[in-house]
Design a protein around this nucleic acid. Structure first.
Lengths: 351, 351
DNA sequence: CTGTTAGCGCCTTCAG
DNA sequence: CTGAAGGCGCTAACAG
């Protein structure tokens, strides 16, 4: 016979109950770990579940619990690497926790979102929302969510950090540690390519760079700090500027991988060996970091961890009693410094 | 008071029925477009739906229809750009059609999948499966799905093309058109960097290149075809080889963007201007294509279209009567040739 | 600790 | 063409 998409393909809670000689309710209880169940009965039920390879029907559960079990992801991020890792992290954790993830994307500007968000909130029934940057800083979106009184977690928000729970990475600390790595290799003339000043992460990374220099008692040379715009092309210009200095740096720390890749390219054109004569470090550990040769020493954001934390936080918010709007939790996750081939100890330049 | 995750946040079918002065059944009918409903009644119902902003409860619908409304995506692809675009495309279409997408990933080898797939098929209840490459060519996976008798669509399969419905891009045609673009620019000495011969797309792209040459009556010079392995580093070696030729090509078509980026890098080191003295074309339109400078002329796979087609095909398969296992549909989608800054007309080399 | 009762919101089936 | 009854699988709420 055909089994495809028929009734319940597997066993139902009733089957398990019968086999275990208990009522469906008891099975439900061992499943949901709420009420206490006598160990012996629990055993029998669990055995029956295994034997029948019973899997609860999510639709039925969701219907009975009056929870959609759906989480919406509001996002719009031009960086595919970030998105895919985020999505995968979110989905994995969602699956573990029993939620399903639905993607929503209304465009790239606050205005476009403003047009769509209200309707979405009214018509979809999400148990909660996870908002990725930069949407997590779109005014219209966040206030619409607030009005709708729906559980929400923001990822890497920059504005109003107390609005909803949030998860973010510690970019400043990461930049500090990467800089220390460069210092430990013996470098003293360190160049830094910042991102656009308007970007919060940009400022954090620069601060971390300065922190490390200060801690190490290495003087800050403003001429060695140039501003890029996170693009490859801006990195080209910045690298050109730094490497044309009368006394060029022996190491350059770029605020993202694209700009670091540009540094490697410029060095290549100028016949400067990386990492022999110039160490290069990036930030983000994107595809290019390992694509490039030499592979880039860079900072890896714990995106999967962030995703997991976001789901957990959201689940907590969904289950929390609305009355107790305790202070919103904020999780700060550490990044990882990944040392690859683009950084090495200072070598005497064979000028 | 609190509306969060309570009962049904919005209106139910009953509310709509009451407002329209009909029974719930009638509402259900206009919703599901099955049975005929008198135009006048339909009107009233639709008005009520709009007025109440009614959205059917998916869980209830799924429960009643005995369909999970879940689609599993079996995937494992190291390329983040591909994954994220695919995911987004799939989810968007799924949402339109009323399905939910659940990701499954058991690892990167056929063996790892073999270990997990059976259990998954037994315990999850997907209405259907979409299988992305390279999993779509894992023997153990495909035969397990066949045994489980579950609806399935494969994306870009290479082996046994008739097994299940499938969607793929026409890489050969795309390569042919890109090559023609280069020929149209006046190039006659065209270099080609192939991917690993084991990869089907690789062979397709090379064939397309040869097709175009033949059509244009340009002789094939085997010395101008070198094999890479789709990696940046292998592209470096290939470019080095091509550009060291006594009579180097004036244009190089690489089988993917990473290798094309490597060509640009090597040209840079050698002081060869791109596109002034050398035109470069890639394939895939990945992030690097636009990150790089000059931006890469490349081929864009219609990934979102493929995703949409895959969902549509799957929906059809799910709703089809199992008896009528008609010939499996295969959809072949055209790619787009994207002309950017890395290709231009031949210029006299200022040797 | 466990069972009973009564739905969740929608759709199938069968009457009108 | 439309309505009434019943159930999908599960879990609250209340007994015992």
């Amino acid at each position: 016979m055909r089994t495809r998409a028929n009734k319940q393909s597997g066993a139902t809670i009733k089957d398990v109950a019968d086999l275990a000689g208990v009522s469906a309710m008891t099975v439900s209880r061992v499943l949901n770990a709420g009420h206490r169940v006598r160990p012996a009965t629990r055993e029998r039920v669990e055995a029956a579940i295994r034997e029948l390879n019973y899997k609860p029907n999510l639709s039925a559960r969701s219907l009975a619990k009056a929870r959609s079990l759906f989480i919406g992801l509001l996002y719009n991020n031009p960086n595919p690497g970030y998105v895919s890792e985020l999505l995968i992290g979110l989905m994995n954790r969602c699956r573990q926790v029993g939620y399903h993830l639905v993607i929503e994307n209304f465009g790239s500007t606050d205005e476009e979102w403003a047009a769509g968000i209200e309707g979405m909130l009214a018509s979809s029934n999400f148990d909660g929302l996870i908002v990725a940057p930069p949407v997590s800083d779109f005014d219209s979106v966040m206030s619409a969510i607030e009005r709708a009184d729906i559980a929400c977690v923001r990822i890497a928000p920059e504005l109003e950090p107390d609005l909803f729970a949030s998860v973010r990475t510690d970019d400043r600390d990461a930049a500090r540690r990467m800089t220390r790595h460069l210092l430990d290799l013996g470098h003293r003339r360190l160049g830094f390519i910042a991102g656009d000043a308007g970007h919060g992460a940009s400022r954090q990374r620069l601060s971390g760079f300065k922190d490390a220099l200060e801690e190490a008692g290495v003087g800050l040379d403003d001429g060695l700090i140039v501003e890029g715009r996170f693009t490859y092309r801006s990195g080209l210009a910045a690298a050109e500027q730094l490497l044309s200095l009368r006394q060029p740096p022996t190491a350059i720390f770029a605020s993202n991988d694209d700009m670091a890749a540009a540094v490697v390219a410029v060095a290549g054109r100028k016949g400067i060996d990386v990492p022999g004569e110039l160490s290069v470090a990036g930030f983000d550990d994107t595809h290019t970091a390992t694509t490039l040769w030499p592979q880039l020493t860079t900072v890896r954001q714990p995106i999967a961890d962030m995703a997991g934390a976001a789901v957990d936080l959201l689940a907590a918010a969904i289950n929390a009693e609305p009355e107790q709007d305790a202070a919103q939790t904020q999780r700060l996750l550490p990044c990882e410094v990944i040392i690859r081939d683009s950084s090495s100890t200072v070598k005497a330049k064979p000028a």
